[in-house]
Deep mutational scan, measured.
Amino acid sequence: MIINNLKLIREKKKISQSELAALLEVSRQTINGIEKNKYNPSLQLALKIAYYLNTPLEDIFQWQ
C-alpha cells in the first residue's frame, strides 16, 4: 500500500487542489482522489507532483 503526504505538503505550501490540478493538467477530482488514497498516481504524474511541489518524491509517497 502506498501512503501519501500530498495533502499535508500541498497545504503547507499554501497551494489549493485546483491550483495544483491546473499546474499538472489534471482535474481537481484527480488530486482529491490521490489525497484520499482512492487510487495511486502513475509514475509520470507522481514525478510531476514532486517537481511542482519542489519536494522529493519519497517525501510525498511512501510504501507501507
Results as ranks from 00 to 15, higher is better:
Leu47Ala: 12
Arg28Trp: 15
Gln64Arg: 06
Ile31Ala: 02
Ser42Ile: 04
Gln64Glu: 15
Thr30Asn: 05
Leu24Ser: 07
Ala50Ile: 03
Leu23Ala: 15
Leu43Gln: 09
Glu11Thr: 12
Asn32Lys: 15
Asn54Ala: 14
Leu47Asp: 06
Tyr51Phe: 12
Pro41Ser: 03
Lys7Ile: 06
Phe61Ile: 03
Leu43Glu: 07
Ile34Thr: 02
Ile3Ala: 08
Asn54Val: 07
Ala50Trp: 02
Asp59Pro: 02
Pro56Gln: 06
Ala50Tyr: 02
Ile2Gln: 08
Ile31Cys: 01
Ser16Asp: 06
Leu23Asn: 11
Glu58Pro: 10
Tyr52Asn: 06
Glu11Phe: 06
Ser16Met: 06
Leu53Trp: 03
Ser16Pro: 06
Ala21Glu: 03
Leu43Val: 10
Ser18Asn: 14
Leu8Phe: 14
Ile3Gly: 07
Ser18Leu: 12
Leu8Cys: 10
Ile49Cys: 05
Gln44Tyr: 10
Leu45Tyr: 02
Ile2Glu: 07
Lys13Leu: 13
Gln17Cys: 05
Ser42Met: 05
Tyr51Val: 07
Arg10Val: 03
Leu8Ser: 13
Leu20Ser: 00
Ile49Thr: 03
Ala50Cys: 06
Ile3Asn: 08
Asn37Asp: 09
Arg28Gln: 15
Thr30Ala: 08
Ile9Glu: 05
Leu20Trp: 01
Leu23Thr: 07
Ala50Gln: 04
Val26Tyr: 03
Ile49Met: 07
Leu20Thr: 01
Ile9Thr: 07
Pro41Val: 12
Leu47Asn: 11
Lys12Ala: 14
Gln17Asp: 05
Tyr39Ser: 09
Arg10Gln: 01
Gln17Ser: 07
Lys13His: 12
Lys12Thr: 13
Ile49Ser: 01
Leu45Met: 10
Lys38Pro: 02
Ser42Lys: 06
Pro56Thr: 07
Ala50Met: 04
Asn4Gln: 04
Ile49Val: 06
Asn37Trp: 11
Val26Trp: 02
Thr55Glu: 12
Tyr52Arg: 05
Leu23Ser: 11
Asn5Ala: 05
Lys38Asp: 12
Leu53Ser: 01
Asn32Thr: 12
Ile60Pro: 00
Leu8Thr: 15
Glu11Cys: 07
Leu20His: 00
Ser16Val: 04
Glu25Tyr: 08
Leu45Ala: 03
Gly33Trp: 13
Phe61Lys: 00
Tyr51Pro: 01
Ser18Val: 12
Trp63Tyr: 07
Pro41Asp: 01
Asn37Tyr: 06
Ile15Thr: 04
Leu24Asp: 00
Tyr51Cys: 08
Met1Ala: 06
Thr30Val: 15
Ala46Asn: 01
Pro41Asn: 01
Arg10Lys: 01
Asn32Gln: 11
Ile31Glu: 02
Phe61Trp: 05
Pro56Asn: 08
